[in-house]
């Protein structure tokens, strides 16, 4: 009975693992195959890797898309980390009744479905197009701004600040540091792992964001990677080898981050439920 259970466990887990990995394998193998071979279900590596990549870079605007996505993801990550950690630190270190109430209200924003606010946001950015050209419709600024502050990361930093030794703050004050000095010189360096975890998750969210860029970006040269892939995917005469190459390139950064920083990755995911 026991060995039977064992066998069932391994069988079930193996099936789950194969189902999970198979699309990745297919994607990677297809990068090296001709479009025809991909449609005929070839599952062995071919010799078309270079040709596919060449076609991709020559016929598809992938370089601008990569640049746009990188700019958006880097700035979003930086802004989110800065604003959310300032706020998380403020809510925890300078606790007061008023702030606790405000914090609870901010948390409610996590329940707001994006689809419910995208139309007003679109109109809002439309109305500032003339006065603030950097943040109008069809600008990277407009993609970044609404995503740069999220209650989730304020919550995340606040939870982690609970474990930050308060003595360090006092020591900093006695040494004559200003409140912001304490924050930047003492808090930020001690909380490196928290920042790393938050950075990974923010970067991934931003890199993969689809709906908001789809709404606010219009010109083809502003396209981000998900918009480009969606576009390639809906073409009538798809070149599978080339599309798979684009998908692999788009997935590489997040996959690399996952494999190199698994611990922080999981810590960032779990941040919300600790404590």
């Amino acid at each position: 009975m026991k060995t039977f259970n064992r066998a069932m466990t391994y069988t079930f887990l193996s099936i789950a693992a194969i189902v999970s990995i198979f699309p990745f394998l297919w994607m990677i193998v297809s990068v090296t195959n001709k479009s025809v071979d991909v449609t005929q279900g070839r599952l062995l590596p071919g010799t078309h890797l270079i040709t596919n990549l060449k076609t991709l870079f020559e016929t598809v605007e992938i370089v601008p898309a990569l640049i746009n996505s990188t700019i958006i993801a880097v700035i979003s990550t930086f802004l989110t980390l800065l604003l959310a950690s300032l706020a998380g630190y403020g809510f925890e270190m300078f606790r007061s009744k008023g702030k606790d109430i405000v914090f609870t209200i901010l948390l409610l924003s996590m329940m707001i479905p994006f689809a419910a606010i995208m139309v007003p946001l679109y109109r809002m950015f439309g109305s500032v197009s003339d006065t603030l050209p950097l943040f109008g419709i069809d600008t990277l600024g407009a993609v970044i701004l609404p995503t740069a502050t999220t209650a989730f990361f304020i919550f995340f930093f606040r939870q982690n600040t609970k474990m930050f030794p308060k003595d360090l703050v006092e020591a900093g004050r006695i040494d004559g540091l200003s409140e912001l000095g304490v924050f930047f010189r003492i808090y930020v360096p001690t909380m490196k792992t928290t920042y790393a975890a938050a950075a990974i998750i923010t970067f991934m969210n931003s890199w993969n964001n689809y709906l908001w860029p789809l709404v606010i970006l219009q010109s083809p040269e502003k396209r981000t990677i998900p918009l480009l892939i969606s576009n390639l995917g809906s073409s009538y005469s798809p070149d599978y080898g080339v599309i798979m190459s684009a998908i692999v390139i788009a997935t590489l950064p997040t996959a690399l981050v996952f494999f190199l920083m698994q611990k922080h990755f999981v810590a960032g995911m779990m941040g919300s439920v600790k404590g």
Binding site: F91, F94, I112, P120, M124, T149, A151
Partner: peptide, 20 residues
Amino acid sequence: GWLFVIISIIAITIFNFYPM
């Protein structure tokens, strides 16, 4: 303490609550 949290409060109000 309010200075630390004020930017986020304003941003979330402008980009979440006001659109709601």
